[in-house]
Computed example of a mutant assay.
Amino acid sequence: MGELGKFERKLPNDRRKALIEATLACLAREGTAGLSIRKISKEAGISIGLINHHYAGKDELVGAAYEHFSLGHLDRNRERIEAAGDDPRARLHAYIEGLLSAPMMDRGTLRIWVVFWSIIENSKPMLDVHDRTYAAYRALLASLIEAAGRQAGAPPIDGRLAAIALTAMLDGLWLEGCINPETFSPEEAVMMCESWVDALFSGKMPRLLASIARN
């Protein structure tokens, strides 16, 4: 990268990609201090004027970076699921394992999520991105739980509620694992989630069964 003020010429799509990647790099390195158009401009090698040409403001750029970041992790998890083959329980295991291993468990990843979450309360565009991406994660997990439950001969499960509950468990383990990786190993975290799934499929969580949840 050249000195500030000496910027590379990039095609529009390449510029957007470079800006998003630069935004994520600044947030991973500096946290909220990285939320500066000047710093993002320097990181991307793109002038502030061109940033303003592509995005209405910093909030729009950060929102685009949030969506790219969140769905990028989801896409990587989809790849893990497909690599697991056709067995429904193996596919569910791949989803769980993917959210409790690198790069999700990296400190830089945590730092980026924390910055994004700190903005959501006061930003409708960021809240909209959160709702869309969370819905995508939840829908995928619900389908995996329901398929694995059918394979196991479990009672009909309310996939939406089960996905919300398991996501909450995954988020808690992920957060603590990032903050203090000495508390438990990734393998132990996966085992705890798998034990939760076993209990669900055995009917020991009756309030998450479809017949009861609908009433």
Rank of each mutant, 00 (worst) to 15 (best):
A147N: 10
L161K: 14
D86C: 10
N13K: 15
A64V: 09
R107H: 06
E67R: 09
D131L: 15
K124Q: 12
G49R: 11
P156K: 14
F201H: 06
S143Q: 06
G159L: 05
E82N: 12
H93K: 08
W174Q: 14
A65C: 12
L110F: 03
F184D: 00
D158F: 07
A210L: 05
A152I: 10
R214C: 05
S185V: 12
E82F: 09
L175D: 09
Y134T: 08
T183V: 11
K6L: 14
R15H: 02
L71Q: 05
C178M: 06
G63R: 13
E30I: 08
A28P: 00
T133C: 15
Y55G: 00
S185T: 15
L127S: 10
G45Q: 01
G34E: 01
H130I: 02
E176L: 10
S70T: 14
C178E: 04
G49E: 04
A168H: 03
E79T: 11
E82A: 15
C178I: 13
I46M: 04
I120S: 14
E182Q: 13
A189H: 08
S101W: 03
D158P: 05
T183E: 12
G153N: 07
P181E: 08
D106C: 09
R91N: 07
E3M: 14
P125A: 04
V197L: 13
A139N: 10
R76P: 06
A189N: 13
G108H: 11
P12I: 14
S41W: 01
L11F: 11
R107L: 04
M169W: 01
A28D: 10
V197T: 02
R29H: 14
L140S: 03
A25M: 06
P156C: 04
R107A: 15
E146C: 03
S202M: 06
I20C: 08
P103D: 09
S202Q: 06
I212P: 06
A56K: 15
V114E: 11
A210Y: 10
L170V: 13
A18K: 02
F116G: 00
M105P: 09
C178L: 12
S195F: 03
F201A: 02
I46P: 08
P103V: 04
N180A: 08
D14Y: 05
A162E: 01
T183P: 02
S101R: 15
D198Q: 14
L74V: 11
S195R: 13
D158T: 01
D75V: 15
I48H: 15
G2M: 02
A102M: 06
G172C: 11
P186V: 09
I164T: 04
A94L: 03
F7M: 07
L141I: 05
I120Q: 02
I51W: 01
V129M: 09
T32R: 15
C178D: 06
I40Y: 01
G72P: 07
S123M: 06
W174R: 14
A152M: 00
A64I: 08
